[in-house]
Simulated scan of single mutants.
Amino acid sequence: MRIVVCVKHVPDVQAERVFGERGFLVRGDDDVLNELDENAVQEAVNLAGDDGEVIALTMGPEDAADGLRRALALGAHRAIHVCDDRAAGSDVLGTARVLAAAIRQLDGETPVDLVVTGMAALDGMTATIPSALAAHLDLPALTLAKTVERDGTTIRITRTMGVNDEVIEADLPAILSVTDQANAVTYPNFKAIMAAKKKPVTQIDLDDLGLGGDLVGAAGAGTRVTNAVERPPRAAGEIITDSGDGGTRLADYILGVMK
């Protein structure tokens, strides 16, 4: 089974988010592999088994290679890094075009059975890349899976929709996105981390994929940041001294906040 797992190198969720003059998110030394993508890599490794291949794929600047190394340490066999300055400023539309083009190229070499993603990237939280990839590649999308089963060439998932669980399935090839409930990530030991340094990472650009700069980056984006303000500092909390009416005062406070 040949699986492509799409991953993203993102700012740490605890770090302050800052936009540059062009409206692009400023990235720094504290960037990490998107936490939800670790579940995607784990699910890909689980489904591939001992005789399958897992290929980690990302689009991003030079330091996005660090995210790929993390994916390799988690069990991916090799990685593809689409690195091109012309892709800077891509939104979901441009990112999906690039990733889909890279997957088509891989599929042309040897068929890709499954594309796996996390449920969302923690920088933008759009959660739309899986559906966008399905549209570009004309494949069924099994999204937000909390359980995943493979039966031959069929993938079956369970996902929670509102208060109900839903079971859906599709024949391969397909797009699969998983939540953090889908599996328990096996974190790499020192040996796995060192072995990841020797696994191949292939860097390609937009020309290799036959994409022009007008289709990706800021030029091809359907959205743009027009304004951003800093998050206000956290205000000091209010201390309620219980003089017998603490419960009532606390309830009144909560009701006031909810108005």
Rank of each mutant, 00 (worst) to 15 (best):
A134V: 10
V148K: 06
I175L: 06
R69Y: 14
A101N: 06
D123T: 12
K146P: 01
A134L: 10
V148I: 12
A76W: 14
S177R: 06
T154H: 12
T153F: 00
G152P: 07
G152I: 11
A102Q: 09
G108Y: 04
A135I: 05
G152C: 11
R78T: 04
R159Q: 08
V115D: 01
D151H: 15
H81G: 06
V112T: 15
E166G: 02
H81F: 06
A174D: 04
V116C: 08
R150E: 10
T158G: 09
L172Q: 08
L172E: 08
L74F: 08
L99H: 07
Q105V: 12
T128L: 13
V98Y: 05
R78W: 07
H77S: 13
A132S: 15
T95M: 10
T158W: 04
D85N: 14
G75P: 06
L137M: 10
D171K: 10
P173E: 00
T147V: 05
V112A: 08
L122W: 01
R104G: 10
T147C: 11
T160V: 15
L106A: 14
I103E: 00
G162S: 04
D151S: 12
A100H: 02
A145I: 07
R69I: 07
A73D: 04
T128Y: 05
T158F: 00
L106E: 15
T179I: 03
Q105Y: 12
H81P: 01
T153I: 06
T147E: 14
I157Q: 01
D138T: 14
T117G: 01
R86Q: 13
A88C: 02
L93A: 13
L93C: 03
L72N: 09
V167W: 10
L139C: 05
D91V: 12
D84I: 04
A96G: 14
A145E: 02
K146S: 13
I155H: 06
A76R: 05
A76V: 10
I103Q: 03
L122T: 01
E169T: 04
T110H: 09
A79V: 09
E166D: 09
A127Q: 03
V115W: 02
M125P: 00
H81T: 07
V167Q: 14
V112H: 06
L72A: 13
T95H: 05
D123Q: 11
V178D: 01
P111T: 11
V112G: 10
T153P: 02
V163M: 03
A121Y: 07
I157R: 03
A127K: 03
L122M: 12
A76C: 10
G89E: 09
R159N: 07
R70K: 14
R70P: 04
V178S: 01
A96H: 00
S177T: 08
D180L: 03
A102E: 06
T126D: 01
I168R: 09
A135M: 13
M125F: 15
E109C: 00
L68S: 05
A71N: 05
L114T: 09
A145Y: 02
A135D: 15
V92M: 12
T95I: 12
R159I: 03
A141Q: 12
A96R: 05
D107H: 15
G124T: 01
A100L: 03
I155C: 03
D85C: 00
D151Q: 15
P173T: 11
G162Q: 04
G124N: 10
A134C: 12
